[in-house]
């Protein structure tokens, strides 16, 4: 009797959760079925049932079609550049937190933290609107440069592909650095103060405390975040690059995610773009498990 009651309750509780499970199934699992579009020659509005089955045509196309290969290589180059720059400067938020922690004037510290975290909470559209206001031909920077006589005519900061990777990285840092530093600041506040004091008593300078105590105790956090960004190497997201792209910088700003979007929605190549994003997903999952394994080997625990 009791057992039956328990069972009934187990199912009842499951029924309460079921609607949400269904939502997950519909919006996260069911779209995987859409991968079969990669094996058809799908051209809307013709439904899939009337489209021709083409097997691996779109996958081989990436390698055999010279124009496509070149495009993919160009897009991969942009993706690698953007993710590479982020990886290269991944220590920046950590150092941002370390030196902010050295500031003893609490109101100033709080002010810096508040102001630098704010950009993380605005959308990329707003970031672009800000960029436009500051860097357009009548924006603040050109206005200052011209009034100081440093430029005769407005400099086209946004409508050029010059240093575009670096500029995109700067915007990304502007938006994220303050926020990313919060986690390190929390980790710093967890450092045993006795350790720092003992080092101080032994005559360690500030530099030495930073270098021998603060930074080493942040390395585990840094390592996990590094592994996560490695796992996301191919996924830059498209929003930032979409809002900043224009006909002048398009070829060097187009990362993989944006390329998939442009090719499908812009050019109607649903099938081939699904094939590309499928390959991307497979590589990403492999990267995820690899980095997780590395993390397990180094730290004894993974992050999944």
């Amino acid at each position: 009797m009791l057992k039956n009651k328990k069972k009934a309750r187990a199912y009842k509780e499951f029924l309460l959760v079921l609607p949400f499970i269904l939502l997950v199934a519909i919006f996260s699992y069911y779209p995987l079925y859409g991968w079969i579009y990669a094996f058809f020659d799908y051209k809307p509005p013709k439904p899939l049932s009337q489209s021709a089955f083409v097997g691996f045509k779109w996958f081989t196309n990436i390698v055999s079609n010279k124009i496509k290969t070149q495009e993919i290589l160009r897009v991969l180059k942009n993706t690698f550049a953007m993710s590479g720059l982020s990886l290269l400067f991944s220590w920046f938020p950590m150092m941002f937190a370390v030196f902010l922690n050295e500031i003893k004037c609490v109101p100033f510290k709080k002010f810096v933290q508040t102001v630098t975290t704010l950009p993380n909470f605005i959308s990329w559209v707003l970031v672009y609107s800000i960029a436009y206001s500051i860097f357009s031909s009548t924006g603040a920077v050109n206005s200052v440069l011209q009034s100081m006589g440093l430029a005769d005519k407005p400099i086209m900061f946004l409508q050029s592909s010059e240093h575009i990777w670096f500029k995109m990285w700067l915007w990304l840092t502007w938006k994220n650095a303050g926020w990313a530093a919060i986690m390190y600041l929390a980790a710093i506040s967890g450092i045993d103060e006795q350790l720092t004091e003992a080092a101080r008593v032994d005559g360690a300078s500030r530099w030495q405390v930073i270098w021998h105590i603060t930074v080493p105790s942040l390395l585990p956090t840094y390592f996990v975040l590094l592994m996560i960004s490695l796992a996301n190497f191919l996924s830059n997201g498209m929003e930032q690059y979409y809002v900043f792209s224009n006909s002048f910088n398009k070829s060097s700003i187009e990362v993989l995610d944006l390329y998939v979007y442009n090719m499908a929605i812009g050019a109607g190549g649903y099938s081939i773009s699904t094939a590309v994003s499928m390959l991307k997903s497979v590589v990403s999952v492999i990267l995820l498990f690899t980095t997780n394994t590395i993390s397990k080997a180094v730290r004894g625990e993974g992050f999944i």
Partner: peptide, 18 residues
């Protein structure tokens, strides 16, 4: 089943078609 969805993504085109 729920948490696993953080780590994979069908891609925007299959999502759009869904």
């Amino acid at each position: 089943f729920v948490v696993a969805t953080m780590y994979f993504n069908a891609g925007i085109i299959p999502w759009f078609l869904t």
